[in-house]
Design a binder for these strands. Structure first.
Length: 193
DNA sequence: TTCCCGATTGTA
DNA sequence: ACAATCGGGAAC
């Protein structure tokens, strides 16, 4: 049973994050199509002290509080961009961080964006994934999926529940114990750790 | 206006 | 293990 994208993005982050594994993220660029399969995600919600939405709406985090189906792109560590799929209901601040993906189409474009030919290093981290997609600013933040240059497609083959691993999230200082990072077991394209 | 810090990455 | 690098957000 495949979940329509429109239904999936209405779910709370903790439900949507594992379900997004296997879905495809795509972008149309002047050089052609880029497409990857999502293999690693993390869930962030309003009651979560590690979430940007924890302290309420700010100009930066406003997209997290919109209806699911938008993008939330943020700039971090003075040099990296990370992309989220906003999920859930309007007024509730939650999103799913895209941490890693498996390259499918537009490999040469991503190799150019990333300055490496190593397939496993094209999208094996949230900042790296954004680089592969050619994201160099936060202009896409708040944009609506499938109505902007970023598309989300249903999986061709559904990921079985037993193939999904849950583990603690990476790089956070709060709520380090909860297993809200999800990835496809044995997939070679997940981020380090 | 000042100050601290971060949902990271690449290099040593 | 650690530097690079700068915008967001709280405090002053």
């Amino acid at each position: 049973l495949k979940l329509e994208v429109d239904q999936l993005v209405k779910l709370p982050a903790l439900e949507a994050a594992p379900l997004l594994l296997g879905y495809k993220i795509a972008r149309w660029t002047p050089a052609g199509w880029i497409k990857l399969m999502i293999v690693e995600t993390e869930a962030y919600h309003q009651g979560d002290p590690a979430s940007h939405s924890f302290k309420g709406v700010t100009p930066r985090t406003a997209p997290m509080f919109e209806t699911g189906g938008r993008l939330y792109v943020y700039f971090t560590y003075g040099m990296h961009y990370c992309m989220n799929i906003v999920v859930g209901q309007k007024g509730v601040g939650e999103a799913v961080l895209l941490r890693a993906a498996q390259p499918l189409e537009g490999i040469s474009i991503m190799q150019r964006n990333r300055k490496t030919n190593d397939m496993r290093q094209l999208a094996n981290g949230p900042g790296i994934l954004a680089q592969a997609l050619g994201i160099k600013d936060t202009k896409l933040s708040g944009e609506i999926l499938n109505k902007s240059s970023i598309l989300l497609e249903e999986p061709s083959r559904r990921i079985k529940p037993e193939q999904i691993v849950a583990s603690p999230r990476i790089g956070i200082k709060h709520a380090i114990d909860v297993p809200w990072r999800f990835y496809i077991k044995d997939n070679p394209f997940i981020s380090r750790v």
